[in-house]
Simulated scan of single mutants.
Amino acid sequence: MQKIVFFLLSIGFTVSSFAQDLDFVRIEEGTYTVGEDGAVLNPRRTVFIKEFNIATTELTNAAFLLFVEATGYRTTAERYCNAQVFEPGLEEFRWIQDSTAYWRFPNGVSRGGIGNKMDHPVTCISYRDAIAYCKWAGVRLPTFEEWEAAAKAGSTGKYFEGASEEKIEEYANIWHKDDHLKPDFSDGYMYTAPVKSFKANPWGLYDVLGNVFEFCEGRLPQDKGRKVAHARGGSWWCNRTSCAAFNTVFIGSVAPMASFSNLGFRVVRD
């Protein structure tokens, strides 16, 4: 990959512009319904959103590699050896801190790397890492409201048109078993899936439900005095009994320096 980057530079192609060569969907300026009736953290409300462009997929390993090759950036997990990973057999909501895990080996060195997974979403990324990428690439993270408006694709419920908890398998890479005691390859993937492996929402966005949680910008009432980041959309780990976060209204919280193997991001361009 480094040779490819140098070749592109030699013919006048900047690494930054190449990294931004993503597909985007334009979300028109207007009024959108977000949230859910009775929800404390994300109550139903009407919001006005200015026009923006959101990536059709989560950022991939390939795109993040270009950033690292161009800048020499070292992620939080590399610097502090604090990435949290999962392996079947753990109790619900139990993760393992693996000092060898980072974005190139998102589940630890012993569980293999990303050599043949360049089209998978990059993971073991902290909020700090996501912001660093965005600054380099000239993009940003979506706000709570922007992400939700794009994910709903004109719907006002928890799911966009065509999707439901019963039909989630068509649209999302999730965990299908009731617990995490044994591996689950029901949909062909135990961990991440290549982006665009499942159906897109009506506006052309892939993996807004499942695959990996996606960092967003926003603050919740409970955040006062706390350093916290938030992510949305559910992940490959989420199942119906333990998580069920694979919808358009759930908002999760994580420490800004935390790195998990089911957490990545999607970018916005103004």
Rank of each mutant, 00 (worst) to 15 (best):
A163K: 03
I174V: 15
Y191C: 08
P88A: 08
K199P: 05
S126W: 00
H180M: 05
P194H: 03
M190E: 15
V109M: 11
Y171C: 01
A149Y: 04
S164P: 04
V267M: 10
R226A: 09
G112N: 08
E217H: 05
F160H: 10
K167M: 11
E170G: 01
D37N: 11
I11N: 00
I54N: 02
A193C: 11
E214T: 11
A231I: 01
D184H: 07
W95H: 11
R140K: 15
N61E: 08
L59C: 07
L181W: 12
R140G: 11
N61I: 09
P88T: 07
A258W: 12
A55R: 03
L263R: 11
S155Y: 03
D207T: 11
V249Q: 05
Y73G: 02
D178A: 14
A231R: 08
K182T: 15
A137L: 03
G115F: 12
P202C: 02
K152L: 13
S10N: 08
K177Q: 14
A132Q: 09
W147S: 00
E161G: 11
A153D: 02
A137Y: 03
E214N: 06
V34L: 01
F213K: 05
A137C: 10
G225Q: 13
I174S: 03
V195K: 02
A258Y: 12
I49H: 00
E87N: 07
W237F: 13
A130K: 04
A153F: 10
G204A: 04
G234S: 07
T76G: 10
L90K: 13
S10V: 02
F215P: 05
T123V: 15
K182V: 14
D129H: 08
A130H: 10
A258P: 07
W203V: 12
Y102T: 04
R44T: 02
P43I: 01
S164G: 10
T156I: 13
D23S: 13
W175G: 01
L41I: 09
W95K: 13
C81L: 12
G233W: 00
V25M: 09
K158A: 12
S10Q: 09
A39G: 06
F52A: 00
S99F: 09
Y206G: 05
I27G: 02
S186F: 14
I49D: 01
L41W: 05
S155D: 13
Q222F: 01
M257G: 06
P88N: 05
V212F: 04
A63T: 14
I49S: 01
E165L: 07
K117M: 12
N116F: 11
D179L: 01
K199R: 15
E28Y: 06
E87S: 14
